[in-house]
Amino acid sequence: MKPVSFKYLKPTGLEEATAILAEYGAEARILAGGQSMMPMLNMRIARPSVLVDINEIVELNYIRASDGAVAIGAVTRQRRLGDDDLIAAQVPVLATALKCMSHPQIQNRGTIVGSICHGDPAAELPAVAIALGAEVTAHSQAGARTIPVADLYRGYYRTTLEPNELVSEVKFPAMPPGCGWSVVEISRRHGDLALAGVVTMIVLDGKEIGQARLACFGLGKAAHRLVEAESMLTGQLASGDLFQEVASIVSSSVKPMDDSHASAEYRRALAAELTQRSLSEAIERAKQGATS
């Protein structure tokens, strides 16, 4: 379990980093918190000839308000999601997601952007980002472009990022006032990547569901939105029957995989259960939000 030989570079600025990426292209890989990258290197699943360690780019360590959104820099650690006031006020769903994720040791090192770029189909943050309509900013020497996280994934652990691009930040739109949310998952152990998970955000319009955003993880090749479920919910009165109907649609529309922990069939059953749990929890929060 030793990596192949590689050149180790440690840029201290974004420009230096993009210059390195421009030079080495697909030969290079970015190292952020290393919580996924180090195992991939040691198991020789990743075999870069250049490793670009971005941890010293201190300018990318931030959480800040930005045009009705919360922008988070590429070296900001996941742990911050649990203790940041701006996040608690504007995107509290991220703090909820953190509670499902890994363990403090890993959160202290792993980055928020790294998790999104890694795109593990069973990871929480990509799904939350998709439900929120978050975007990442990808930099290369040619300039910067913005990519909605919903468009970032194109298959199992594959993203639309170019090898010469580095994601400098992710921007999470602030949740609308009164928004109720939920992140639920089933994992084998506390802190494991999920067997299946669902993220829900609901805004009530009077008694009706005004707006619903749902995304799932662990239920396909990548996290994705549950558009059909959203449209079934919008404009409806929340009810157990409706939730059950939505759950069965979600369960039959997702395309989960088999592995040694769970079959696709079981994951579908979890999808139905989690959809119901998630909807009930989000509605509860939305009702509280509406009255508070």
């Binding site: 195992p39 198991m43 152990r189 506390h190 802190g191």
Partner: peptide, 27 residues
Amino acid sequence: FEEYVYDEYGQPQSVTFADYLMPTIYE
């Protein structure tokens, strides 16, 4: 939690701690 799983070809499925699940202090 723990179980060394093999597929029908005798391929081991539990060769890292992500697949061979040791219980932790939470469990």
